[in-house]
Design a protein around this nucleic acid. Structure first.
Ligand SMILES: [Mn+2]
Ligand SMILES: [Mn+2]
Ligand SMILES: [Zn+2]
Ligand SMILES: [Zn+2]
Lengths: 130, 130
DNA sequence: TATAATTATGCAACATTGTTGCGTTTACAA
DNA sequence: TTGTAAACGCAACAATGTTGCATAATTATA
Protein backbone atom coordinates (compact mmCIF):
# COMPACT_ATOMS: atom_id res chain seq x y z
CA UNK A 1 0.00 0.00 0.00
CA UNK A 2 1.40 3.35 -1.04
CA UNK A 3 2.23 5.92 1.59
CA UNK A 4 0.41 9.23 1.30
CA UNK A 5 2.64 12.24 1.79
CA UNK A 6 1.37 15.64 2.72
CA UNK A 7 3.72 17.98 0.99
CA UNK A 8 3.62 21.76 1.20
CA UNK A 9 2.43 22.08 -2.38
CA UNK A 10 -0.28 19.49 -1.90
CA UNK A 11 -1.61 21.23 1.20
CA UNK A 12 -1.58 24.57 -0.62
CA UNK A 13 -3.42 23.20 -3.67
CA UNK A 14 -6.03 21.53 -1.52
CA UNK A 15 -6.60 24.71 0.46
CA UNK A 16 -7.02 26.74 -2.73
CA UNK A 17 -9.69 24.32 -3.90
CA UNK A 18 -11.43 24.23 -0.53
CA UNK A 19 -11.56 28.00 -0.06
CA UNK A 20 -13.02 28.69 -3.50
CA UNK A 21 -16.79 28.66 -3.79
CA UNK A 22 -16.76 27.33 -7.34
CA UNK A 23 -14.85 24.61 -9.16
CA UNK A 24 -11.53 25.55 -10.75
CA UNK A 25 -9.38 24.36 -13.63
CA UNK A 26 -5.73 23.39 -13.27
CA UNK A 27 -4.82 26.73 -14.89
CA UNK A 28 -6.78 28.72 -12.32
CA UNK A 29 -5.44 26.68 -9.43
CA UNK A 30 -1.86 27.07 -10.64
CA UNK A 31 -2.37 30.82 -11.01
CA UNK A 32 -3.48 31.04 -7.39
CA UNK A 33 -0.64 28.83 -6.16
CA UNK A 34 1.91 31.65 -6.47
CA UNK A 35 4.66 29.48 -7.94
CA UNK A 36 4.74 27.22 -4.94
CA UNK A 37 5.53 24.41 -7.38
CA UNK A 38 5.78 23.53 -11.06
CA UNK A 39 2.59 23.34 -13.13
CA UNK A 40 3.22 19.65 -13.80
CA UNK A 41 3.26 19.09 -10.06
CA UNK A 42 -0.17 20.69 -9.81
CA UNK A 43 -1.47 18.15 -12.34
CA UNK A 44 0.03 15.32 -10.33
CA UNK A 45 -1.26 16.66 -7.03
CA UNK A 46 -4.76 16.94 -8.50
CA UNK A 47 -4.58 13.31 -9.64
CA UNK A 48 -3.62 12.24 -6.14
CA UNK A 49 -6.30 14.31 -4.44
CA UNK A 50 -8.90 12.74 -6.73
CA UNK A 51 -7.60 9.27 -5.91
CA UNK A 52 -7.69 10.09 -2.19
CA UNK A 53 -11.28 11.29 -2.68
CA UNK A 54 -10.63 14.75 -1.32
CA UNK A 55 -11.67 16.43 -4.56
CA UNK A 56 -13.65 15.44 -7.63
CA UNK A 57 -13.26 16.07 -11.33
CA UNK A 58 -15.88 17.78 -13.48
CA UNK A 59 -15.69 18.31 -17.24
CA UNK A 60 -17.13 21.71 -18.05
CA UNK A 61 -19.30 22.24 -21.12
CA UNK A 62 -16.31 23.61 -23.04
CA UNK A 63 -14.27 20.49 -22.36
CA UNK A 64 -11.99 21.93 -19.69
CA UNK A 65 -11.60 19.79 -16.59
CA UNK A 66 -12.44 21.43 -13.28
CA UNK A 67 -11.95 20.37 -9.68
CA UNK A 68 -14.07 20.87 -6.60
CA UNK A 69 -13.83 19.59 -3.03
CA UNK A 70 -15.67 16.45 -2.04
CA UNK A 71 -17.98 17.05 0.85
CA UNK A 72 -19.56 13.72 1.66
CA UNK A 73 -18.04 11.24 -0.70
CA UNK A 74 -18.23 7.55 -0.01
CA UNK A 75 -16.17 5.09 -1.98
CA UNK A 76 -19.15 4.25 -4.12
CA UNK A 77 -20.32 7.79 -4.69
CA UNK A 78 -16.92 9.32 -5.30
CA UNK A 79 -17.16 9.52 -9.06
CA UNK A 80 -20.79 8.65 -9.61
CA UNK A 81 -21.80 11.87 -7.95
CA UNK A 82 -25.31 12.41 -6.81
CA UNK A 83 -25.22 16.12 -7.53
CA UNK A 84 -25.36 18.24 -10.63
CA UNK A 85 -23.14 21.05 -11.86
CA UNK A 86 -24.17 24.48 -13.01
CA UNK A 87 -22.11 26.20 -15.68
CA UNK A 88 -22.70 29.94 -15.92
CA UNK A 89 -22.51 31.26 -19.48
CA UNK A 90 -21.79 34.77 -18.20
CA UNK A 91 -19.08 34.44 -15.53
CA UNK A 92 -18.01 30.98 -16.74
CA UNK A 93 -18.02 29.67 -13.18
CA UNK A 94 -18.86 26.06 -12.51
CA UNK A 95 -20.79 25.36 -9.32
CA UNK A 96 -21.72 22.15 -7.51
CA UNK A 97 -25.43 22.02 -6.80
CA UNK A 98 -26.69 19.85 -3.99
CA UNK A 99 -28.24 16.49 -4.61
CA UNK A 100 -30.67 15.94 -7.39
CA UNK A 101 -32.56 12.76 -8.09
CA UNK A 102 -32.93 11.91 -11.73
CA UNK A 103 -34.60 9.03 -13.44
CA UNK A 104 -32.73 7.62 -16.36
CA UNK A 105 -34.54 6.11 -19.27
CA UNK A 106 -31.81 4.05 -20.88
CA UNK A 107 -32.30 0.78 -22.78
CA UNK A 108 -31.55 -2.15 -20.48
CA UNK A 109 -28.70 -3.41 -22.66
CA UNK A 110 -26.59 -0.47 -21.57
CA UNK A 111 -24.72 -1.00 -18.30
CA UNK A 112 -24.68 2.31 -16.47
CA UNK A 113 -21.72 3.27 -14.29
CA UNK A 114 -21.67 7.03 -13.76
CA UNK A 115 -24.03 9.90 -14.44
CA UNK A 116 -22.77 13.32 -15.49
CA UNK A 117 -25.37 16.06 -15.30
CA UNK A 118 -24.39 19.62 -16.08
CA UNK A 119 -26.80 22.47 -16.56
CA UNK A 120 -25.82 25.71 -18.22
CA UNK A 121 -27.48 29.08 -17.86
CA UNK A 122 -27.09 32.19 -15.71
CA UNK A 123 -26.04 31.95 -12.08
CA UNK A 124 -27.67 34.01 -9.28
CA UNK A 125 -24.72 36.41 -9.05
CA UNK A 126 -24.89 37.24 -12.73
CA UNK A 127 -28.68 37.55 -12.69
CA UNK A 128 -28.53 40.28 -10.06
CA UNK A 129 -26.16 42.39 -12.16
CA UNK A 130 -28.50 42.32 -15.15
CA UNK B 1 -27.81 37.45 -44.28
CA UNK B 2 -25.00 35.08 -45.07
CA UNK B 3 -25.30 32.77 -48.03
CA UNK B 4 -24.84 29.09 -47.30
CA UNK B 5 -22.51 27.31 -49.69
CA UNK B 6 -22.49 23.57 -50.09
CA UNK B 7 -18.89 22.82 -50.86
CA UNK B 8 -17.45 19.41 -51.65
CA UNK B 9 -15.61 19.23 -48.34
CA UNK B 10 -18.70 20.26 -46.40
CA UNK B 11 -20.84 17.62 -48.07
CA UNK B 12 -18.17 14.99 -47.41
CA UNK B 13 -17.85 15.92 -43.72
CA UNK B 14 -21.60 15.90 -43.25
CA UNK B 15 -21.90 12.50 -44.90
CA UNK B 16 -19.16 11.07 -42.68
CA UNK B 17 -21.07 12.24 -39.62
CA UNK B 18 -24.40 10.98 -40.91
CA UNK B 19 -23.18 7.52 -41.87
CA UNK B 20 -21.50 6.84 -38.53
CA UNK B 21 -23.62 5.26 -35.82
CA UNK B 22 -21.81 7.06 -33.01
CA UNK B 23 -20.59 10.60 -32.46
CA UNK B 24 -17.11 11.50 -33.65
CA UNK B 25 -14.40 13.97 -32.76
CA UNK B 26 -12.80 16.35 -35.25
CA UNK B 27 -9.75 14.08 -35.28
CA UNK B 28 -11.80 11.03 -36.23
CA UNK B 29 -13.77 12.93 -38.84
CA UNK B 30 -10.60 14.34 -40.40
CA UNK B 31 -9.06 10.87 -40.49
CA UNK B 32 -12.06 9.58 -42.44
CA UNK B 33 -12.08 12.56 -44.80
CA UNK B 34 -9.11 11.23 -46.77
CA UNK B 35 -7.38 14.60 -47.12
CA UNK B 36 -10.29 16.14 -48.92
CA UNK B 37 -9.37 19.36 -47.15
CA UNK B 38 -7.15 20.85 -44.47
CA UNK B 39 -7.81 19.98 -40.82
CA UNK B 40 -8.55 23.64 -40.07
CA UNK B 41 -11.24 23.53 -42.73
CA UNK B 42 -12.83 20.59 -40.95
CA UNK B 43 -13.04 22.69 -37.78
CA UNK B 44 -14.66 25.51 -39.71
CA UNK B 45 -17.08 23.21 -41.51
CA UNK B 46 -18.13 21.70 -38.18
CA UNK B 47 -18.83 25.18 -36.81
CA UNK B 48 -21.01 25.95 -39.81
CA UNK B 49 -22.90 22.66 -39.64
CA UNK B 50 -23.64 23.31 -35.97
CA UNK B 51 -24.89 26.81 -36.77
CA UNK B 52 -27.06 25.41 -39.58
CA UNK B 53 -28.42 22.87 -37.07
CA UNK B 54 -27.44 19.86 -39.13
CA UNK B 55 -25.21 18.47 -36.40
CA UNK B 56 -24.81 18.98 -32.68
CA UNK B 57 -21.86 19.21 -30.34
CA UNK B 58 -21.32 16.92 -27.37
CA UNK B 59 -18.52 17.14 -24.83
CA UNK B 60 -17.41 13.65 -23.92
CA UNK B 61 -16.50 12.75 -20.33
CA UNK B 62 -12.78 13.15 -21.14
CA UNK B 63 -13.31 16.68 -22.42
CA UNK B 64 -13.06 15.95 -26.14
CA UNK B 65 -15.78 17.51 -28.26
CA UNK B 66 -17.76 15.15 -30.45
CA UNK B 67 -20.29 15.71 -33.21
CA UNK B 68 -23.43 13.82 -34.14
CA UNK B 69 -26.20 14.46 -36.67
CA UNK B 70 -29.34 16.29 -35.60
CA UNK B 71 -32.42 14.27 -36.29
CA UNK B 72 -35.33 16.38 -35.20
CA UNK B 73 -33.90 19.62 -34.03
CA UNK B 74 -36.05 22.68 -33.70
CA UNK B 75 -34.52 26.08 -33.19
CA UNK B 76 -35.27 25.87 -29.49
CA UNK B 77 -34.10 22.33 -28.98
CA UNK B 78 -30.98 22.55 -31.10
CA UNK B 79 -28.55 22.85 -28.24
CA UNK B 80 -30.81 22.18 -25.32
CA UNK B 81 -31.15 18.60 -26.45
CA UNK B 82 -33.83 16.41 -25.08
CA UNK B 83 -31.72 13.29 -25.28
CA UNK B 84 -28.85 11.89 -23.30
CA UNK B 85 -25.46 10.59 -24.37
CA UNK B 86 -23.84 7.31 -23.47
CA UNK B 87 -20.07 7.15 -23.21
CA UNK B 88 -18.66 3.61 -23.32
CA UNK B 89 -15.63 3.15 -21.10
CA UNK B 90 -14.51 0.15 -23.15
CA UNK B 91 -14.77 1.15 -26.82
CA UNK B 92 -14.79 4.89 -26.02
CA UNK B 93 -17.73 5.42 -28.37
CA UNK B 94 -20.24 8.14 -27.64
CA UNK B 95 -23.83 7.37 -28.56
CA UNK B 96 -26.98 9.49 -28.69
CA UNK B 97 -29.79 7.86 -26.75
CA UNK B 98 -33.36 8.76 -27.58
CA UNK B 99 -35.36 11.13 -25.47
CA UNK B 100 -35.20 11.06 -21.74
CA UNK B 101 -37.31 13.16 -19.41
CA UNK B 102 -35.50 14.36 -16.35
CA UNK B 103 -36.66 16.49 -13.49
CA UNK B 104 -34.19 19.08 -12.38
CA UNK B 105 -34.05 20.16 -8.79
CA UNK B 106 -32.20 23.43 -9.08
CA UNK B 107 -32.68 26.46 -6.81
CA UNK B 108 -34.99 28.94 -8.48
CA UNK B 109 -32.37 31.68 -8.55
CA UNK B 110 -30.52 29.80 -11.25
CA UNK B 111 -31.74 30.49 -14.78
CA UNK B 112 -31.48 27.25 -16.71
CA UNK B 113 -30.68 27.30 -20.42
CA UNK B 114 -29.34 23.91 -21.50
CA UNK B 115 -29.11 20.48 -19.94
CA UNK B 116 -26.16 18.19 -20.60
CA UNK B 117 -26.71 14.63 -19.50
CA UNK B 118 -24.05 12.03 -20.22
CA UNK B 119 -23.98 8.55 -18.79
CA UNK B 120 -20.89 6.40 -18.81
CA UNK B 121 -20.70 2.63 -18.62
CA UNK B 122 -20.52 -0.31 -21.00
CA UNK B 123 -22.39 -0.27 -24.29
CA UNK B 124 -24.34 -3.30 -25.64
CA UNK B 125 -21.64 -4.17 -28.20
CA UNK B 126 -18.95 -4.33 -25.54
CA UNK B 127 -21.16 -6.26 -23.12
CA UNK B 128 -21.61 -9.07 -25.65
CA UNK B 129 -17.87 -9.51 -26.07
CA UNK B 130 -17.34 -9.94 -22.32
C1' DT C 1 -20.56 36.69 -70.30
C1' DA C 2 -17.63 39.69 -67.57
C1' DT C 3 -16.90 41.62 -63.25
C1' DA C 4 -17.56 42.44 -58.41
C1' DA C 5 -18.67 40.80 -53.90
C1' DT C 6 -18.81 37.25 -50.75
C1' DT C 7 -17.66 32.86 -48.87
C1' DA C 8 -14.53 29.16 -48.21
C1' DT C 9 -9.94 27.25 -48.16
C1' DG C 10 -4.81 26.30 -47.30
C1' DC C 11 -1.04 27.11 -44.80
C1' DA C 12 1.74 28.66 -41.21
C1' DA C 13 1.97 30.01 -36.83
C1' DC C 14 0.32 30.12 -32.26
C1' DA C 15 -2.34 28.95 -27.83
C1' DT C 16 -4.02 25.97 -24.36
C1' DT C 17 -4.35 21.86 -21.90
C1' DG C 18 -2.48 17.80 -20.55
C1' DT C 19 1.33 13.91 -20.48
C1' DT C 20 5.89 11.49 -20.07
C1' DG C 21 10.76 10.49 -18.91
C1' DC C 22 14.33 11.04 -15.98
C1' DG C 23 17.53 12.69 -12.67
C1' DT C 24 17.17 14.98 -8.07
C1' DT C 25 15.04 16.16 -3.75
C1' DT C 26 12.05 15.44 0.14
C1' DA C 27 9.14 13.30 3.56
C1' DC C 28 8.47 9.76 6.56
C1' DA C 29 9.07 5.18 8.85
C1' DA C 30 12.05 2.51 11.16
C1' DT D 1 19.76 9.37 11.66
C1' DT D 2 19.30 7.12 7.66
C1' DG D 3 17.24 4.34 3.80
C1' DT D 4 13.73 4.35 0.63
C1' DA D 5 9.52 5.31 -1.55
C1' DA D 6 7.12 9.27 -2.96
C1' DA D 7 7.17 13.68 -4.84
C1' DC D 8 9.29 17.14 -7.54
C1' DG D 9 11.46 20.16 -11.40
C1' DC D 10 12.52 20.58 -15.87
C1' DA D 11 12.47 19.74 -20.58
C1' DA D 12 10.30 17.77 -24.16
C1' DC D 13 6.30 16.11 -26.33
C1' DA D 14 1.32 15.42 -27.71
C1' DA D 15 -3.40 16.52 -28.61
C1' DT D 16 -6.80 19.75 -29.54
C1' DG D 17 -8.27 23.96 -30.99
C1' DT D 18 -7.64 29.03 -32.87
C1' DT D 19 -6.12 33.08 -35.75
C1' DG D 20 -4.32 35.87 -39.62
C1' DC D 21 -3.80 36.39 -44.16
C1' DA D 22 -3.27 35.52 -48.95
C1' DT D 23 -5.63 32.76 -52.48
C1' DA D 24 -9.38 30.20 -54.61
C1' DA D 25 -14.07 29.16 -55.52
C1' DT D 26 -18.79 30.40 -55.77
C1' DT D 27 -22.58 33.38 -56.39
C1' DA D 28 -24.71 37.87 -57.51
C1' DT D 29 -25.49 41.43 -60.88
C1' DA D 30 -24.40 44.48 -64.45
MN1 LIG E 1 -19.40 18.71 -7.83
MN1 LIG F 1 -26.84 13.62 -29.36
ZN1 LIG G 1 -22.29 33.67 -13.35
ZN1 LIG H 1 -18.49 0.06 -26.14
Amino acid sequence: MAIIRNTIAKKAVFEIIQLNKTAMSQTEIFAKANNICDRVTVYRILERLVKEMKIHKIVNVNGVINYAPCNSCSHEQHVHHDHLHFSCTTCKKLTCISDNRIELNIPSNYQVAEVFLTVSGICPDCLIIT
